[in-house]
């Protein structure tokens, strides 16, 4: 008996110590040293962190890639692909492979989400002032005449050549950052980095797991208190991308709040019951496009999508302050808010 108790004692104390030591070890090993880089681009604060001996080179190359993509995809830079397409007056324009790939994805995602994602909404977004910060509620006549030119199915793309109808303009704001984080991950891998994490204005993508083999802990913001975290999810090799009504909004004189995610149906802020949509998946571009589209579609549309494609995971927050998350992340989801959280039922 005495021996047994002694054994248990030793075992327990061993357990304690091993638990305490592993983290210390993780910090001290040389190949686990990390480098971090801030990039101010695409109207967003980006932070990249990479581990291992090639981290610095990888970060520098990733930064170059970000600036290159910004140059191609910017809607305001007069030398960008998008500027050329938007000022083409109906003529065909040759664009980079990046731009062509994103436009094709935008059309595909529009088709998959009942046209909830529409890259031709740009003139309407401008009218609301969401592109400049000079906010105003458009009058109905202006809105309806602008909406006549909104239809992504009229965007014609063949290989790298894009043709838009006259007066139609596109912007890839709903997809550009997701594509950028995919490309950062590629640059990291090409440079031999196997552990890295980036945050592009709160949208996170991770390469591999942490150098000690544990998962990355990613926080999702509370849409009702955007300076605090709502939940933590643990991921490896995934993108975690959120669209929320708190990201860009203004309050009109009558007290109504208008946010930047517009419904292509009526050109008004999408108000279908959701205030935040987080999409978790392997591809940042897909997740970014979907987070916007499913925000527009609302809870039922988002759940329908999940049924049709269970390869993604979702965290939905409804305007009555409830969190719904898909069963795929049930084991790695921690609610740290005061809201109730429940698993999305697909039955």
């Amino acid at each position: 008996m005495l021996k047994k108790v002694l054994a248990v004692t030793l075992f327990l104390s061993g357990l304690m110590f091993s638990g305490g030591c592993s983290e210390e070890k993780a910090v001290s090993e040389a190949d686990m040293s990390s480098s971090s880089r801030d990039v101010f681009a695409m109207d967003t604060f980006m932070n990249m962190k990479a581990y291992g001996s090639n981290a610095d080179i990888a970060l520098s190359e990733a930064e170059e890639r970000i600036l290159q993509l910004e140059e191609e995809l910017s809607v305001t830079s007069e030398t960008s692909d998008i500027w050329a397409v938007d000022h083409s007056s109906g003529a065909a324009v040759d664009v980079s492979e990046d731009t062509a790939l994103i436009i094709n994805k935008a059309i595909e995602m529009g088709n998959k989400t009942n046209s909830a994602l529409d890259i031709t909404l740009y003139p309407v977004l401008k009218e609301w002032g969401f592109t400049t910060g000079d906010y105003k509620v458009p009058d109905d006549n202006t809105l309806s005449s602008l909406l006549k030119k909104v239809d992504y199915s009229k965007v014609h793309i063949a290989e790298n050549t894009v043709t838009l109808p006259k007066e139609t303009e596109i912007d890839l704001g709903a997809l550009a950052k997701g594509y950028t984080s995919d490309e950062i991950m590629k640059t990291m891998e090409d440079n031999g980095v196997s552990s890295a994490i980036v945050s592009l204005g709160g949208n996170v993508q991770a390469l591999g797991s942490k150098p000690d083999g544990s998962n990355w802990k990613v926080a999702v913001r509370d849409p009702f208190a955007p300076d605090t975290d709502m939940c933590i999810i643990e991921i490896a090799d995934k993108a975690v991308i959120t669209s929320g009504n708190y990201e860009r909004y203004f309050t009109a004189e009558d007290g109504t709040v208008y946010w930047h995610i517009l419904d292509p149906e009526d050109g008004y802020p999408a108000d279908n019951g959701l205030v935040s949509v987080t999409v978790i998946g392997d591809c940042g571009l897909d997740c970014d496009a979907l987070s916007t589209a499913l925000f527009v579609e609302g809870y039922d549309g988002a759940v329908d999508f999940l049924r049709s494609d269970p390869s993604f995971d979702l965290i939905l927050v409804t305007d009555d302050r409830k969190i719904y998350y898909s069963s795929g992340i049930a084991d790695c989801f921690t609610n740290i808010s005061s809201m109730e959280a429940e698993v999305i039922s697909l039955d």
Binding site: D38, F40, D43, F45, N47, S199, A219, D227, T228, D229
Partner: peptide, 20 residues
Amino acid sequence: KTGELRSENIPIVCLPHKLV
């Protein structure tokens, strides 16, 4: 507008002045 620094995940950022 960000207010006080609270979360390790949400820094205070001034984009135009590249300050974090």
